[in-house]
Amino acid sequence: MRTLTVVTGMLVAACAQAQDVSPGKGIYTCTTADGRRLTSDRPIPECTSREQRVLNPDGSQRATLPPFLSPEERTAKEAADRRAAAERIAQLDAIRRDRTLMQRYPNEAAHQRARNTALDDANKATRLSERRIQDLNHERKPLLDEAEFYKGKPLPGKLKQALDANDAGIEAQQVLIENQKAEIVRINTRFDAELARLRKLWAGATPGSMAPLNELPKSTPPATPKR
């Protein structure tokens, strides 16, 4: 009897908390594991592991009392609920991203224009570095000519410093060029992935129905000149 009272009390508490069903009101009904249909004016202890329907006096369903969960089962259910909620949020986010992508690029021409703009900045930076290397090579020639007078002898400090600075300048520009090449690869990879997805969306694929885009490569950390 004591066990029955405890179980009933736990059922009432769970019912009131989960379904806002006032204990002692309504008609509780369930079907046991062996097929018996039970009815009571309070939660049914024999159905602690099964769902119980709570009916109004006219027979209409007012609420549902879920199976009673042990602490371990409740913890597992809460974890499953959190995972399901996270999946729903991720799905809504995927739909939003796809719709935003389609609004930003209504057709392939618009996407290509955006690609060209992104690449233009990297190409401009590359050309600037190439011109700077040409200037440095031009500045280096008279320094090398002067160094010819000191073959087999230590270079004057000022001349050596000028040559070292010229070397460092050329190396720095070469590093910048390599960084821009890596950036161009990253830009094209991103736009290629977007275009493949957009073509499916333009063809009628439902936003959010496809696997998410792979993590796009981020800008390559700038290389530093060797010392």
Results as ranks from 00 to 15, higher is better:
residue 2 R to S: 14
residue 5 T to M: 13
residue 5 T to G: 12
residue 10 M to S: 10
residue 13 A to M: 06
residue 13 A to R: 10
residue 13 A to G: 05
residue 15 C to V: 14
residue 16 A to I: 06
residue 18 A to Q: 15
residue 27 I to H: 05
residue 29 T to M: 11
residue 29 T to E: 11
residue 30 C to I: 00
residue 31 T to I: 06
residue 36 R to F: 13
residue 37 R to E: 11
residue 38 L to D: 02
residue 38 L to E: 02
residue 41 D to L: 07
residue 41 D to V: 11
residue 42 R to Q: 15
residue 44 I to A: 00
residue 45 P to V: 04
residue 48 T to M: 14
residue 50 R to N: 07
residue 51 E to K: 08
residue 52 Q to C: 04
residue 56 N to C: 06
residue 58 D to E: 05
residue 58 D to G: 04
residue 63 A to S: 13
residue 65 L to N: 01
residue 67 P to H: 01
residue 70 S to Y: 03
residue 72 E to R: 09
residue 75 T to Y: 09
residue 80 A to F: 03
residue 80 A to L: 03
residue 80 A to N: 03
residue 83 R to S: 15
residue 84 A to G: 06
residue 84 A to S: 08
residue 85 A to H: 12
residue 89 I to E: 15
residue 90 A to C: 09
residue 90 A to Y: 14
residue 93 D to A: 15
residue 95 I to R: 09
residue 97 R to S: 11
residue 97 R to W: 12
residue 99 R to T: 12
residue 101 L to M: 11
residue 102 M to E: 02
residue 103 Q to F: 12
residue 104 R to P: 05
residue 107 N to F: 02
residue 110 A to N: 11
residue 112 Q to P: 13
residue 115 R to F: 13
residue 119 L to H: 03
residue 120 D to M: 15
residue 122 A to M: 05
residue 122 A to E: 03
residue 125 A to M: 11
residue 130 E to C: 00
residue 131 R to V: 13
residue 132 R to Y: 08
residue 139 E to P: 00
residue 139 E to L: 15
residue 141 K to R: 14
residue 141 K to P: 08
residue 147 A to I: 00
residue 149 F to W: 11
residue 157 G to Q: 13
residue 157 G to S: 10
residue 160 K to A: 15
residue 160 K to I: 03
residue 162 A to W: 07
residue 163 L to Y: 06
residue 165 A to H: 06
residue 166 N to I: 05
residue 167 D to F: 08
residue 172 A to E: 13
residue 175 V to N: 10
residue 178 E to F: 03
residue 179 N to Q: 02
residue 180 Q to I: 05
residue 180 Q to C: 00
residue 180 Q to T: 04
residue 183 E to F: 02
residue 185 V to L: 03
residue 190 R to Y: 01
residue 191 F to C: 04
residue 193 A to T: 11
residue 199 R to P: 02
residue 201 L to Y: 01
residue 201 L to Q: 01
residue 204 G to M: 01
residue 206 T to L: 10
residue 206 T to Y: 04
residue 208 G to E: 02
residue 212 P to W: 03
residue 213 L to P: 06
residue 214 N to H: 09
residue 215 E to C: 10
residue 218 K to T: 13
residue 219 S to L: 14
residue 220 T to H: 06
residue 220 T to A: 09
residue 226 K to V: 14
residue 226 K to G: 07
residue 226 K to W: 09
